[in-house]
Amino acid sequence: MPEGCAPVEANATPKIAIRAVSRRFRRADGQTVDALADISLDIPAGEFVCLVGASGCGKSTLLQIIAGLLAASAGTVRVAGSIVAGPGPERGMVFQKDSVFPWFRVIDNVEYGLRCRGMKRAEREALARHYLERVGLAHVARAWPRELSGGMLKRVAVATVFANGADVLMLDEPFGALDYVTRHQLHDVLLDLWEESGAQTGRRTILFVTHDVDEALTLADRIIVFRTGRLVDDFRVAAPRPRTTDSLLLPELVAHKHRLLGHLGLERLPPPRPGMANA
């Protein structure tokens, strides 16, 4: 783990262990691009981590590698001790684009992963209804996805991954295309589900990709910053929850915000932390 990363609790096995992961793409003109370069990172179980960076900095690539949808050019990713070799239901993903299956009704979408696991119909329907209730969509359980708004579709996607019981949830700029109000409502939904799961079986580990600084500060226990395929900062956000728009005015969060804006090139860069690349 690079020096400067948020410390992992003693004796705690990281839920996600990323070791020297690189990913190189070849462009149509024959040139190669390093989307990720030598990333090492430990993420303990139950942590809500936001990956922040400008577009094209490699954060979504890392998420896809952890999800098993993309192979790393070098390095390994372990989740709960097992090397990631492909996608699996223990690692759920909410995508940036709409991923809800339009040919299934809303409730059948939420049940999809449960059906893959062979869960009995009554059981999976009850579970799906519970999560639809939690995301405020119980009234449209039998609707077709085309009848839903963009925000409702995101709720369906969130309900689907939570219902599927994944230990690790990855959300790739899930609310980026939504309006301000809907985005905030979905933050509440997401945090409620995260905390609810914590009360029952221990919090799930969440990796949330965003380039919205306020979104990261509202949601995260820990923020990891990427720039041009490199990890350039990694810090904890200790502000108490629940965080509101007023919380963003807390001195600690204001300082974090300036720091993040600096990384995004909107303010003067903060001095590099020991062990961190500062391109």
Binding site: L69, F101, G113, C116
Partner: peptide, 20 residues
């Protein structure tokens, strides 16, 4: 994205073809 979604939700190949 629909194929990726199904795979991350645990769909095997036959199930993926049948349902996606």
């Amino acid at each position: 994205i629909h194929i990726d979604n199904a795979r991350t939700l645990g769909a095997g190949k036959l199930h993926l073809y049948r349902t996606v």
